[in-house]
Amino acid sequence: MKKLLLALLFIPLMSACSQGDAASQSTQAQAIHDHDRCHLCGMMITKYPGPKGQLGLKGETIVPKFCSTRDMFNFALQPENKRQITHLNVHDMSITDWEKPDNNAFIDATTAWYVYGTSKKAVMGPAVASFSSKEAATQFANDFGGAVLTYDQITIELLAGE
Rank of each mutant, 00 (worst) to 15 (best):
V123H: 03
A122V: 07
S119M: 10
K121S: 11
I156H: 14
V148Y: 06
K82E: 14
N103H: 09
L4Q: 14
T110N: 10
K121Q: 15
T138V: 01
I85L: 08
G53W: 02
I32G: 02
P101H: 07
S24L: 12
K121C: 09
A23K: 09
M14V: 10
G42N: 05
K120N: 12
D102K: 11
Q84Y: 00
T110V: 15
S132R: 04
V115H: 04
T111G: 10
K82V: 02
S68M: 03
K65D: 04
H91A: 03
I62Y: 13
A16T: 00
A23I: 14
W113A: 09
L8H: 01
A147S: 12
R83Y: 05
S68C: 05
I32E: 03
T96M: 11
L149S: 03
E157L: 12
V115Y: 00
S132A: 10
I95W: 01
T69R: 01
P49R: 05
R37V: 06
G117R: 07
K52I: 01
D21M: 11
I11S: 08
F73E: 07
A112T: 01
Y151V: 11
I154Q: 08
S119Q: 14
C41I: 03
G161T: 08
S132E: 10
D36K: 08
S24C: 13
D102S: 15
G161N: 12
C17W: 14
A16P: 00
C17Y: 15
N103D: 12
A122Y: 01
I156Y: 08
A23D: 11
H39Y: 07
A31V: 09
I62C: 05
A136F: 05
T150V: 11
F75S: 02
S132G: 11
M1E: 15
K82H: 09
G125V: 09
A29S: 13
T110I: 13
S15Q: 13
Q30E: 15
F140I: 10
Q28M: 10
Q25H: 13
F66M: 03
M44G: 06
G53L: 03
F144P: 00
P101Y: 09
A105N: 09
